[in-house]
Design a protein around this nucleic acid. Sequence first.
DNA 1: GTGGTCTAGACCACA
DNA 2: GTGGTCTAGACCACA
Lengths: 120, 120, 120, 120
Amino acid sequence: MNFKNNETIYTQIADHVRKRIFAGGYARGERLPAIRDFAMFCQVNPNTIVRVYQELTEEGLIYTDSTLGKFVTSDAAFIERKKQAYVADKTKQFVASIKESGVTKGQFMELVGLVFDEKL
Amino acid sequence: MNFKNNETIYTQIADHVRKRIFAGGYARGERLPAIRDFAMFCQVNPNTIVRVYQELTEEGLIYTDSTLGKFVTSDAAFIERKKQAYVADKTKQFVASIKESGVTKGQFMELVGLVFDEKL
Amino acid sequence: MNFKNNETIYTQIADHVRKRIFAGGYARGERLPAIRDFAMFCQVNPNTIVRVYQELTEEGLIYTDSTLGKFVTSDAAFIERKKQAYVADKTKQFVASIKESGVTKGQFMELVGLVFDEKL
Amino acid sequence: MNFKNNETIYTQIADHVRKRIFAGGYARGERLPAIRDFAMFCQVNPNTIVRVYQELTEEGLIYTDSTLGKFVTSDAAFIERKKQAYVADKTKQFVASIKESGVTKGQFMELVGLVFDEKL
DNA sequence: GTGGTCTAGACCACA
DNA sequence: GTGGTCTAGACCACA
């Protein structure tokens, strides 16, 4: 994982896990990586991962089965709703931001399409 | 101006000014708000604005006429190039990030279109 | 460190560190003094050192390992190139300036030689 | 005249005049440009030139004949002594500074020679 | 303890 | 009034 400078590390990792849950990379009910392992993998202090899991727990995406570890919620509909909300929210923020630069819809939609297909 | 928590204030303001230059809201050659005035307006310390203007100066978007103030560069082609690069870059980052959540191209393009037209 | 009046403190310190890197006094890969320590040593505000390190970071001479500190780049060839450029540049500026006073080459070269050997 | 950022304008102008006196570009006894004219030429506030002339007056290089203007001293020996001192002093400062970067005498003398002849 | 950001406010050069 | 530098010091994320 490479981290950006201008955003806190724990939010970057939280976002990464969230999206992986949305995409099914962590399936519903699946056990998440142990804090220490994940910290090692990210080359990050375990406290940082603790904070990540806290945040996702507050959102209801994961839960703790004490001693067994952290698990993705098994409520598939809930995950789907969160995913739709997340994507819509991020997209609104991004599009609102990019529109401030005075780009036209045509140019922008074309750009998004090309970028999605990794042709640019 | 309302600031987000998880991003530094100076980058948020810098981004705002940058986009306004791209959109022509600050025209080429136009004088930018004085540091102290802008700081008052943003309810922020003057040093924070100093940093914003420093960053934009390094990018070549603005320049200083000491004692007269800060001005947008008058090189329109340069601004246009920077704008294209900015929009493409931000879009690449955003789309790459959003794809991690497992969204399909069809859904996403439709969403972007609706959001652009503020129908959502 | 004694500072001259007519040049900003941060440029004087930056220049000092830069030259020390060139001379190998801070070896490649070596950790630089912590911001607060260096500030104490120079009897200067920590923010001033922040600015010094920022400048050297932009030049590529040093980099940050957040929480571990600041380090000299390990690219020896890069340092050498920067050194040659620095010495040539400063020398050009100085010689051009001193020539305006109407000194002859002979006198000047002799003077430089004596001064280099600290015989004057 | 182009001014550097990191040195005050009045010292830059003062240095320029000083060196021109040393080189005979302003001959001994010659009248210096009127404050307003010189200010116009430098695109600078008249107060700045006032300060320049003050400094040179304190050094004894120029004097004021009230109502007639500012004149270069007619004491040629004095000017010569000042010139030697100036060149020696600046050279000492420069060489001491450049030696900190770890350059060898041979390299440096060769560089100075080339630069003096504008072959580099 | 490490760096990064931000504030409140002073003082300077220049116009 | 304009920007530039600097200080003293707080608070934050991360290890």
